[in-house]
């Protein structure tokens, strides 16, 4: 595995080659839980977007979905991107998660700029990121554990069968779905389905979860439960975890550390909230 550091300024920051297999899976116990305003020069961000610009071409018209966007995600941080529909939130998350290559700018993961080869990006999606979406969250006709096991199949050393099922059980226990391993997903409620999606993220122990409107289809109670789960995961002091959320949902605000608004491709920080519920 090779990681090309194309950014010269980065090369001086950190000269060691980071192996994501280990970075994503192990915590850094020496690092204390950070809050964003205390000396973040000392703390290496999990993810940085540097001057990201992305345009969509539709026939003759050009839509600038993102215009020179900069963003940092620190460990233990929950960043929320709000904004009107069509503001570019999904585009931003897709670029963060290596699903979309930006026209301009760099995505830096743990201080490194990974190359954009398709196998490299697939590895990152598998090891560093977890994705939660409002749509196409789960495979209805499969069992719960089969849904959760998918990331395990694409590990560098794939895990199948009993071993996979055992790991899925652990992940399901974390989202209060213990014992539901063999239930068909079609028999679950909306809130339970979203928790299956979270368990699927957790099973591979990613360091960054990207959640696109995770609560949009949920009632108040379920939304709170999901957000509590995600907050506890991100704020776990023993791990280097971070969460980026895109949402319209004001119920989410109390759970977030920093809130940005994304409108017409421009990202602006709203305010720092510390409304720890």
């Amino acid at each position: 595995m090779t990681i090309h550091t194309t950014d010269s300024t980065l090369a001086t920051d950190s000269t060691t080659v980071v192996n994501y297999d280990t970075v994503s899976a192990t915590a850094n116990p020496t690092q204390s839980p950070a809050s964003p305003e205390e000396g973040n020069t000392m703390i290496q961000p999990l993810l940085e977007l540097k001057r990201i610009t992305h345009r969509y071409h539709q026939g003759d018209s050009v839509i600038t979905a993102l215009d020179t966007v900069n963003l940092e995600l620190l460990p233990h941080e929950i960043v929320c991107i709000m904004g009107p529909s069509g503001g570019g939130k999904t585009t931003l998350l897709n670029i963060c998660g290596f699903l979309l290559q930006p026209d301009h700018g760099k995505v830096v993961v743990n201080g490194k700029v990974p190359d954009q080869s398709s196998s490299r990006r697939a590895r990152l999606r598998n090891q560093v990121f977890g994705y939660i979406r409002q749509d196409y969250a789960v495979i209805d006709h499969d069992k719960v554990w089969q849904n959760v096991a998918i990331p395990l199949e694409y590990r560098k050393k794939p895990i199948y069968g009993h071993k996979a099922k055992a790991l899925c059980s652990q992940a399901l226990a974390k989202v209060n779905l213990a014992g539901k391993e063999n239930v068909r997903v079609s028999q679950l409620s909306g809130g339970q389905k979203q928790r299956v999606a979270i368990a699927r993220c957790l099973v591979n122990d990613p360091s960054i979860i990207l959640a696109d409107e995770p609560t949009a289809a949920l009632d108040h109670e379920n939304a709170q439960e999901i957000m509590t789960l995600l907050r506890d995961w991100a704020h776990d002091p023993t791990q280097r975890h971070g969460l980026i959320l895109a949402t319209h949902d004001p119920r989410i605000i109390p759970y977030c550390d920093r809130i940005f608004s994304l409108q017409d491709g421009t990202l602006t920080q709203e305010s720092a909230t510390h409304l720890q519920a």
Partner: peptide, 17 residues
Amino acid sequence: EMTELRIRYLFGATLGS
């Protein structure tokens, strides 16, 4: 099958696989 294929892509499948 598209739902499943997309989920698999998200979690590490390449277009090749």
